[in-house]
């Protein structure tokens, strides 16, 4: 892929943990630049910190952003699910590539190593599902190619300190979105997602335990599929690791761990790392796909 001479303009909505890390991550992208970060209150700590980092900021939230009508190639929405859903139409009308990091149910659900290629060709509006979904689905999808899943369970445990207020208010949406995405991308008829927040000190790394029941599970192909899938994820999220994989009868258990590899978020916050890495990766590929078609949304 030939890198465009000028980086594409990206805006980040939300100054919580996800939004701030995204902004900092975009600073390292060769394809995208963070041209604006949007917060709700003028006085928010996040906006203040963003300004200190030299980023252009805007208060007034998504409403002010839409009203300003400034053109961006990519908009990352890291606000919250309810707000996102309410402003979906207005955001879509801007023509930008839209990457939704809230657990809402709008947009094409994308897991880069599973359906990334197809998604960036067919859609401009991407839903990044959830941290648990981005961690579990790559291996679940790979396992499902070797057997017939009857039931899937995804249990994520994140350190309390790695979750902000948005996450805590959106736990039900996290569960609904994760379950829907696992069903869609693995074909399992029954899916259950659980989320734990750990108060332990020092903070534990982000852990996701996946369990699949499949009457035709075969240990060899399952293990090979899991490790190959993990290698593919590590291409853009180097802290992704399989800590155990076992097949006992029809039951498959895989333990996954993600540690953050970013200078700006703590090592244990793998939940932030995985969804942001997937979001930036998807946005870069979508932008590149549009550029190839000569259809970069806003030519400068």
């Amino acid at each position: 892929m030939k890198e465009p001479a000028a980086r594409l303009k990206a805006a980040v909505l939300g100054t919580g943990k996800i939004g701030m890390d995204l902004a900092e991550r975009l600073g390292k992208s060769g394809v995208l630049e963070c041209a604006l970060i949007v917060g709700r209150a003028e006085t928010s700590i996040g906006l203040h910190r963003a300004a200190e980092l030299g980023l252009a900021t805007m208060a007034g939230g998504i409403t002010a952003f839409v009203e300003a009508q400034e053109r961006f190639d990519v908009v990352f929405d890291a606000s919250n699910a309810a707000v996102h859903t309410a402003h979906w139409d207005a955001l879509a009308a801007t023509g930008a590539v839209l990457v939704d990091l809230t657990p809402s149910s709008t947009g094409t659900r994308v897991v880069p190593t599973v359906n990334g290629d197809r998604a960036v060709r067919s859609s401009r509006h991407f839903n990044m599902i959830s941290c648990g979904g981005q961690t579990a689905i790559p291996v679940l999808h790979a396992i499902a190619a070797t057997c017939t899943p009857a039931y899937v369970e995804v249990v994520a445990t994140a350190a309390t300190a790695s979750t902000g207020r948005g996450t805590r208010l959106n736990i039900d949406e996290y569960i609904a979105t994760t379950q829907a995405a696992v069903r869609e991308l693995t074909g399992a008829p029954r899916v259950k997602a659980l989320l734990n927040l750990s108060p332990a000190q020092p903070e534990p790394p982000f852990r996701v335990q996946v369990t699949m029941l499949a009457p035709d599970a075969r240990p060899g192909p399952v293990r090979a599929a899991v490790h190959a899938a993990a290698d593919r994820v590590r291409a853009f999220a180097p802290g992704y690791a399989v800590t155990s994989c076992s097949v006992t009868g029809e039951r498959i258990d895989v333990a996954l761990e993600v540690t953050a590899h970013s200078s700006h978020i703590p090592d244990y916050a793998g939940n932030l790392d995985i969804i942001n890495a997937a979001a930036v990766h998807t946005a870069e590929r979508a932008a590149a796909a549009l550029a190839r078609e000569g259809a970069t949304p806003w030519k400068r």
Binding site: T157, N196, S198, A200, Q209, T243, S244, A255
Partner: peptide, 14 residues
């Protein structure tokens, strides 16, 4: 020592 809480039963086999 790991300060696990209810819900982290996956830490038992770990």
């Amino acid at each position: 020592r790991r300060q696990v809480v209810a819900g982290q039963e996956d830490q038992i086999p770990a």
